[in-house]
Amino acid sequence: MVRQVTVNGSRHEIDLPDDVPLLWVLRDALGLTGTKYGCGVAACGACTVHIDGQAVRSCQVALADVWGPVTTIEGLGQPGALHALQQAWIDHQVAQCGYCQSGQIMQAADLLAVNPVPSDAEIDAAMAGNLCRCGTYPRIRAAVHAAARAVQEG
């Protein structure tokens, strides 16, 4: 049946089976390819988006179960109006291949929303589900701290 989802503030009619994961709705039906497929089994975090402001693995949420408005990396911030995390990611030159980074940033955004000044251990705990095969972890950690500071300082 046709279902409606709201993604980055726009409403879409989706004509796909109910069990298609949100990840593949975003990528293939809506062409929002910033959200990545890495494992399909909640083991890598590459597909992380927000539903109702909360980080979820979009590979695990069926179309029929999307319970609120969805924000993807494209909706988090855009050139000219970057989210503090995106700016910190640029300042710290975090990305290597870049494939995992949408998920990393969306996960970190959830962390900062609930814990505006996280410690190293809190960053580790929040980010443990996000794999980076390129090994950008130290810069990710530094960038999360920098974004937290930037938000605090307004």
Binding site: L32, T33, G34, T35, K36, T72, I73, E74, G77, Q78, P79, L82, L85, Q86, W89, I90, Q93, V94, A95, G98, Y99, Q101, S102, I105
Partner: peptide
Amino acid sequence: DMLDKVTGAAQF
């Protein structure tokens, strides 16, 4: 390439 990679615009 950084800007593209933090906004989801980088095309793989």
